[in-house]
Design a protein around this nucleic acid. Structure first.
Lengths: 343, 343
DNA sequence: CCAGCAATTCAAAGCGCTTTGGACGGGCGA
DNA sequence: TCGCCCGTCCAAAGCGCTTTGAATTGCTGG
């Protein structure tokens, strides 16, 4: 079933049928009703490719996911982000096209996406410090929105991000208020921009109370259970071990908890753990009313929604002015933190 | 830059240029070389929409992801599966288009995908018992491959699946050989087909040794850390608690381990845990040489690759004969299992 | 030397839609 | 009554590619 035959059946021209279905005013309401009725009855949906070719709009948003041996971007956070963005795309009639590329080919992938014209814009994930993608996209002239920010870049660009500095500064202050002085940071991978910012918040809070940084208490890595466990265990074995851990993800926090328990200590009493919680769909921090871990909480799915909405707005308005949105994390109290044990 | 202008610059007709680039034989090697050189220099890539319209092939595979309040399909397993499939798509020149829909609209989404013609086929995730999607896709005439199987359906269809029955039968037998008699099953959601099959394997092994099923030792649910923890804790509090747990995912196993440790027991000595491990990229079961949990192991990413390859093969061959592939899980030995403690 | 053939190349139609520029007719004001 | 405008509809061009059918060229063999 296509436009032409539908038009023939109705005794109308394709022009009129097209206009009726797309809500143009130069068609009488009577025929519009007749046309929509017939279209529904015939389960007619205009061919996407033809529509795209005629309008020059791909009605699709690209996500490029680099895959490397070094580490995985296809992680749990990514899945939830995608889900949030996908909701918005679906509502707005956009397709989501995912491209998995070996990370050596990433730049080429953007260029091809552009020149093949199969997306109207792209969403950029997991920016690193001094990430080169922004300059590349600028030169391509392809609309984009960044999930996160890039510390090394001066020029302005569109982004949605959590206020990571503030979140981790508050978290650190919270632990300091509980009289913790040996606070460890189990961070995400060091050249990820969000990890850099979290560390900055942590350092700022310590500096404000004139507490010297102890490099032994700062680690980084892929945010897995094993990372949390191994790094926490190593730090607990130090001569002067930390009394509190700040972790970058729920998985790391779970690993840290295991290390704490293995050491015969009680979480929340002997050792406090405070983590960032992305509110992943399948990895809950207890219940909303009763969290297990005290956490800085910010929904990554919501971030996905906002990124998508922002990108679509940019595309449809044709506006190239960069816009941005900073989300604040809330600090929720769980059972994993308590006053520092007195020595 | 488009075909026409490229052809003009070369002093050739669009026909010839198109043929040169697409490898048709009726063009001399000399001009083909000249054309490809010019195309590369100009960074020319044929417009995807136009190509699709002209060829009638979308060069895209659809994944429909229903989203419900009840539970999340956007889970970690999904992310890894997607990554595997995406690798194959990228190599074969296909796009991956993800559609997120409220699960009430799922059927409609397939219909639209079909009639709008923006995919050449679809990959079906997470089949349930008596899943209706197969019959629907058959009637739509849209090529598909199923990741998993559907117990209630007699007709044949294309699928890739792990031999879940056998995996869990072997796992159960392994525990039985270690003299465990109270073996608990912490399963995935009950109406998921894979959960049903795993349970069948478990039941079959017990039946073979004439051990009665104890419904108190069988639970199901979303495979999260909390599920593993809560359900294991409840079972450990029974008058006659299990000495071994069989869990459906690494996350559940981690939860179960926590419950075991909270009860003052030692995993691998007092209580054994054996889990299924999907080999997720960011959720490793220790290292390959030294697993933490004894596990039935099968890479879901590899499953994604095989599903994608199978679907593309079907599409390109035009073959509508159902094909299928059964993957066997391997049983790897970790530190989480040991002989049943003597009473 | 020319018919016949293979190797190259091209013009033009077509994929299914949108959109521009008109055509047509009815109602209104002058 | 006539002219004009507005509401409604349509024919045809065009989006950028592929592909059919035909044209052109250069050779070969009789």
């Amino acid at each position: 079933m296509n436009l032409k035959t539908l038009a023939q059946e109705l005794g109308l021209s394709p022009t009129t049928v097209s206009r009726a279905l797309n809500g143009y005013p130069e068609v009488s309401e009577a025929t519009r009703a007749r046309v929509t009725a017939a279209a529904n009855a015939a389960h007619y949906h205009p061919n996407t490719q033809a529509k795209r070719l005629a309008t020059g709009r791909a009605m699709a948003i690209g996500h490029i996911i680099p895959i490397s041996d070094r580490h995985e971007i296809v992680n749990p956070v990514f899945a939830d982000f995608i889900a949030g963005a996908g909701e918005v795309y679906a509502r707005s009639g956009y397709d989501m096209v995912l491209t998995i590329v070996p990370d050596a080919d990433e730049a080429r992938a953007y260029g091809e996406l552009r020149s093949k014209g199969n997306v109207d814009g792209v969403l950029i994930h997991a920016p690193r410090v001094n990430d080169h993608r922004i300059t590349m996209l600028e030169s391509l002239g392809l609309p984009y929105v960044l999930h996160g920010r890039i510390s090394g870049i001066e020029s302005s660009y569109s982004w949605v991000d959590v206020n990571n500095v503030r979140a981790f500064e508050r978290a650190t202050n919270f632990l300091l208020d509980l009289r913790h002085r040996r606070i460890a940071l189990i961070n995400g991978i060091g050249d990820m921009d969000f990890a850099r910012r979290r560390r900055r918040g942590y350092e700022r809070a310590l500096a404000a109370r004139a507490i010297a940084l102890d490099p032994q208490l700062i680690t980084e890595g892929e945010m897995t259970e094993a990372q949390g466990h191994d790094q926490a265990r190593a730090m607990l074995a130090l001569p002067d071990p930390p009394t509190a851990f700040l972790t970058a993800s729920l998985l790391s926090a779970m690993g840290a908890r295991r290390a704490v328990e293995e050491a015969g200590l009680v979480m929340g009493r002997d050792v406090s753990i405070l983590t960032h919680d992305d509110e992943l769909g399948y990895l809950k921090n207890g219940t909303a009313q009763e969290p297990i871990f005290t956490a800085t909480r910010s929904s990554v799915r919501e971030a996905g929604r906002r990124c998508a909405a922002m990108l679509i707005a940019q595309i449809e308005s044709g506006n190239r002015q960069p816009i941005s949105e900073l989300m604040e994390a809330v600090l929720v109290l769980g059972q994993s933190t308590g006053p520092a044990p007195s020595r």
